[in-house]
Amino acid sequence: MDSQENRDTKTGVVTKSTGSWYTVRTSSNERIECRIKGNFRIKGIDSTNPVTVGDRVTYTMVEDGTGVINHIATRDNYIIRKATKLSKRTHIIAANIDQALLVVTLQYPETPLMFIDRFLVTAEAYHIPAQIIVNKIDLYTGAIEKELSDFKAIYTGAGYEVIEISAVKNVNMDSLVKILKGKNSLISGLSGVGKSTLINTIDKSLNIKVGELSDRHKAGKHTTTFAEMHELSFGGFIIDTPGIRSFGLADLKDELAHRFPEIRRVMDECQFNNCLHINEPNCAVQAGVEAGSIASSRYANYVSMLEGDEDDPYRQNIHAV
């Protein structure tokens, strides 16, 4: 016969994390507020948050109607970043996701290419398919239109799909719905790129709070405080993350070249097996940069990441608001 504890033990998926409390969605679509049991740590991961949105968990009900999480099922995948510039610990953004969508803007505010490349490298490292969503295309005229064309060439050339949308004007949002339907999708980006407006446009029932830009810096003000998973009316789930102002890499340098698809495609043609693609002779990667088949901006960011340049212009362009 099952013990009382076993009868009270249930399973669910974490849909929201506020640091000390976790909202768990049950199979019957109930929401249970849970804490974690004691000094909960996952072997091999030194993170600031042992439980994250998307985790499949086992919890036990207690007398006050809340739950205590006592087990996390093996994750299919997860995506992390360094918690802070100086910290060696990591922050798990989400787990068990089918794809990662990075929302970027070329202006209002500008998303630096280094931020984009760090995000894509991390997604590659954890084997999560990534796509780039360029928002606010209704605002891009003149020179910015040429910049958008160049941007698309860089990232489609690297092997990524780039989707142009305007959440405010409802431009090309049907394409985004097709991408999201039936999948667990992480959506991320700098503050101010229009993630909340985007989510509200594809599913008006969600009613996510929308923020505004800082007049001083043209950067976004945080509206999403904690990561949260929302069920989409047309099928699937979307994980909305807080606007990120930095995306530090977490110990990915050993296989960094493998995390750039366009470098990975040609690196076996280098003369030396241990080629770092910096100044070695007969390097296929450097030859690709010279020939234009590898974007110079992507290569420069690869070198910067490899050398651990944490003070690159990317960080200086991100303003605190």
Rank of each mutant, 00 (worst) to 15 (best):
S246Q: 02
I239F: 00
V24T: 07
E262A: 00
D312V: 08
A123D: 03
L186S: 06
A300M: 15
I133R: 12
N135F: 04
D309V: 05
E63C: 08
V162S: 01
I294W: 02
I263G: 05
F272C: 09
M173D: 12
K152L: 05
M114F: 04
T156W: 13
N301Y: 00
G159M: 02
G54K: 08
A94C: 12
L101W: 14
V289D: 10
R264I: 00
F272D: 13
V24N: 09
L276M: 15
M267Y: 03
G288F: 00
I116M: 10
T84H: 02
L113T: 15
R41D: 01
E30H: 05
T223L: 00
V162R: 08
T224D: 03
S246N: 09
N274E: 14
V303Y: 01
Q107E: 14
K253G: 03
S304R: 04
D311S: 10
R259A: 05
R216A: 13
F237D: 07
R259H: 12
T74C: 02
M173T: 15
D174H: 13
A167M: 05
L176E: 01
R56Q: 00
V210K: 10
N207F: 05
L113Q: 15
S304Y: 02
G243S: 07
S47I: 01
M305C: 14
E5Q: 14
